[in-house]
């Protein structure tokens, strides 16, 4: 582990923000807690995706499959077979990791370029959607409803809006630390060399398949776990949302807009975008359905034009000019 990592986990700024969120959660209304939980889950999903999409530079559009697995299969196993959702969470994560390794295998076996990898994963994303819709065990097209939450932690019940907010905040925090840990470890170095130049990476002894497969497995498992929590949080598991590649695109947008060079990117972008789009929908949804999407879309375009490498690198640059240090360390931005 690079020394920078220990600087990050001791960063007062980072923990200050996390504690601030936790404290704000004490007073928030259930409606706002719901939005906050959703935000944390998106942070988790975007961070999980960024391990593959950011560090390894592979544009996976299949991540909705892992969300769907974690959400639908874990719920179905519980509803149909009475399997505890904690166990389901682990099983689905393991299965997702295996499927992730399979994607990495396809990538290496057929030496897929960036575009073909994206297209192949998109195809799998679509196939995943079709399988879910046609498979009654996981609820088919109509989805699954989970029984009422009674707050029994052993049954994967977190008890109400506040409980899910805590759980999601904890998950997002853990994922943030995992991302930093990977970034500053051997695996992170290897993934970044593979992303930048696969031939040069191989020349210094980096095995492409092995490292990409590990990244895929970690990313897929993390995505699946967030999916399981999402399912329990929303009680009703909607396949048309959770199994659709549109969800992958949403995750990719958040991760990319935030900036992929630092784990702070996906986190900051989700904190800005998810509440914004939710509140926008709340304000405008009644009179002008669709307008919120248009405004959201314009905002995204504006960010990309202002800073093609993402929101966080832009913020860091501004912050740097004012002499800030801590943010620069945890965002890992070299140079301006």
């Amino acid at each position: 582990m690079r020394p920078e990592f220990f600087g990050i986990i001791r960063s007062p700024f980072l923990w200050g923000v996390i504690v601030l969120f936790a404290v704000l959660g004490q007073w928030a209304s259930p409606y706002h807690l719901g939005i906050a939980t959703q935000t944390m889950l998106y942070i988790a999903l975007a961070l999980a995706w960024a391990i593959v999409g950011g560090f390894a530079g592979q544009l996976s559009i299949a991540h909705n499959v892992f969300v769907a697995l974690g959400a639908l299969l874990a719920s179905a196993l519980f509803l149909r077979l009475g399997i505890n959702m904690w166990v389901g969470l682990v099983l689905c994560a393991a299965l997702s990791a295996l499927i992730g390794v399979f994607f990495a295998y396809l990538d290496s076996k057929f030496s897929l370029g960036h575009l073909s990898f994206a297209l192949v994963t998109l195809a799998f994303g679509e196939v995943g959607m079709l399988i879910v819709a046609g498979w009654d065990f996981v609820g088919g097209a109509s989805g699954l409803s989970l029984p009422r939450d009674q707050g029994r932690l052993l049954n994967f019940e977190f008890g109400g809006a506040r409980g899910y907010f805590w759980a999601a905040l904890a998950l997002a925090t853990v994922y943030l630390l995992i991302n930093y840990a990977i970034l500053h470890s051997r695996l992170g170095f290897y993934l970044r060399t593979l992303r930048d130049n696969e031939a040069a990476a191989q020349a210094v002894g980096v095995y492409p398949f092995r490292n990409k497969a590990i990244a895929m497995a970690i990313s897929a498992a993390m995505t699946s776990v967030a999916g399981t929590l999402y399912a329990r949080f929303s009680n009703f598991v909607d396949p048309s949302f959770l199994a659709s590649p549109t969800l992958s695109i949403e995750i990719i947008l958040i991760a990319t807009i935030g900036g992929l060079t630092t784990p702070l990117g996906p986190a900051v972008a989700a904190i800005v975008l998810v509440p914004f789009s939710e509140l926008l929908r709340g304000w405008l949804g009644g009179q002008l359905p669709g307008l919120s999407h248009i405004i959201y879309g314009f905002l995204i375009v504006a960010v990309i034009l202002a800073s093609p490498r993402g929101l966080v690198p832009l913020l860091v640059k501004i912050f740097r000019q004012r002499g800030g240090k801590d943010v620069a360390t945890i965002s890992m931005q070299k140079g301006a």
Binding site: F189, Y190, T193, R195, D196, N197, A201, G205
Partner: peptide, 17 residues
């Protein structure tokens, strides 16, 4: 062949790993 997003020190570290 360059690692475009790595610093010089990081590139050599990656090799040394």
């Amino acid at each position: 062949q360059v690692f475009a997003d790595l610093t010089v020190h990081e590139a050599v570290t990656a090799a040394a790993l």
